[in-house]
């Protein structure tokens, strides 16, 4: 059972590291519409994020910067979700009853 989680995590890391640098650079659906209908300039960023636009700062090679951002984000998301889950979910039910 445990080993199956490993395959999903591995798949996520491989997608983040190897596929994300190959991602299409076309604007996404909403950006495309915002550009065509001329409201794109209304958008801005309130927050300055540490890794904006999925490019690890200071890395010149774009593919590498994307892959690094992808791996960090995948691990970070896993960690944040498990952290929140730990706060929200009760300990094993079988132990309680």
């Amino acid at each position: 059972m445990k080993r199956n989680w490993f395959w999903w995590l591995l798949a996520a890391l491989l997608i983040a590291a190897l596929l994300s640098p190959l991602a299409s650079s076309h604007p996404d659906g909403l950006e495309r519409v915002a550009e065509d209908k001329e409201f794109l300039e209304k958008g801005y960023s309130v927050l300055r994020s540490p890794i904006p636009d999925y490019l690890f700062p200071g890395v010149e090679h774009e593919g590498l910067a994307t892959a690094l951002a992808g791996i960090i984000g995948t691990v970070l998301t896993f960690g944040v979700m498990v952290g929140i889950g730990r706060l929200v979910l009760p300990r094993s039910r079988s132990q309680k009853s």
């Binding site: 890391l13 995948t74 944040v80």
Partner: peptide, 9 residues
Amino acid sequence: GVMSAFIFA
């Protein structure tokens, strides 16, 4: 955790 990571990627 794994589902979140997979969807992020």
